[in-house]
Nucleic acid binder design. Sequence first.
DNA 1: TGCCTGTATCTGCATATGCAGATATGAGAT
DNA 2: ATCTCATATCTGCATATGCAGATACAGGCA
Lengths: 150, 150
Amino acid sequence: MPRHTDITPATATPACTCLRLRKASRRVTQIYDQALDAHGLTVTQYGLLGYLKALDGIALGELAERLVMDPTTLTRTLRPMEKQGWVASTPDKDDARTRRVHITATGLATYRSAEPAWRKAQEKIATALGESDHKALARTIDHLLTALAT
Amino acid sequence: MPRHTDITPATATPACTCLRLRKASRRVTQIYDQALDAHGLTVTQYGLLGYLKALDGIALGELAERLVMDPTTLTRTLRPMEKQGWVASTPDKDDARTRRVHITATGLATYRSAEPAWRKAQEKIATALGESDHKALARTIDHLLTALAT
DNA sequence: TGCCTGTATCTGCATATGCAGATATGAGAT
DNA sequence: ATCTCATATCTGCATATGCAGATACAGGCA
């Protein structure tokens, strides 16, 4: 039986998991962004709206944590979305430091109208990987994020 | 037996594969960047040096393709690295449009001195995932990138 | 030779990313 | 009441990311 079922082409690819993830991230982002382009949003923005749809009024910091995103990055990512009128923020009643983020009616409508485009991109990935590997990938990433939490 | 072994916590995480990849990318990048910080380079730069070590003199465009990176991004990523003296570029002898990228002696030395730090980060991921899942992840990502090529 | 088309790279614009340090608020101790 | 420490967010800096359009060169054809 075959030994040496090496993953990496001998040529050039150092076996860095981080680079692999980043490459995949770039490629996959491109696909979703292209699919969503007609709706005027990026996959980051689409995903953010999805989070806010489920967690409306969440504090900026907690949202950042869930997105595994630096709070400063999130602040600036939200800026153009506020300008577009998709999200809005209000100060917390009890703690004036905290800023709570909301999805607007416009944001929700945009999210819903973009959903088929998102689904199409998602299916493209599922097809490329096969259902089984696609699910395994999701499971593995979730596991990784859990293991690396805090 | 249990039905419904859902991956995603019902709460908030939309099942977007792109967001998952991006989250993982951010978290994992953070780990490698911290490990490499003492050597003054980011994981992107470290990885780039690794590629150039194997493919010295590669054309910018071809390198970008291998990295699944936009050529314009690569141009600008190389800029601070040239300033540091880690890489240098020369015009192609036959085709004046093409710019060939080289790793310098300093670049190579920096790469080698940073290797233990890189390895430590890599092992952190391997430990978090377990060897088997770590390998499966690499295989799946490579498969995905191949399937999505061009 | 001169023109057209394709290719390799770069610049301008906009968002994405996160670290360090600044600011403002909250909460507990004296 | 004030002091101190912790927490939530923001600003400044630097790199990361890629699209659209500009520029420069190569190669084929008339």
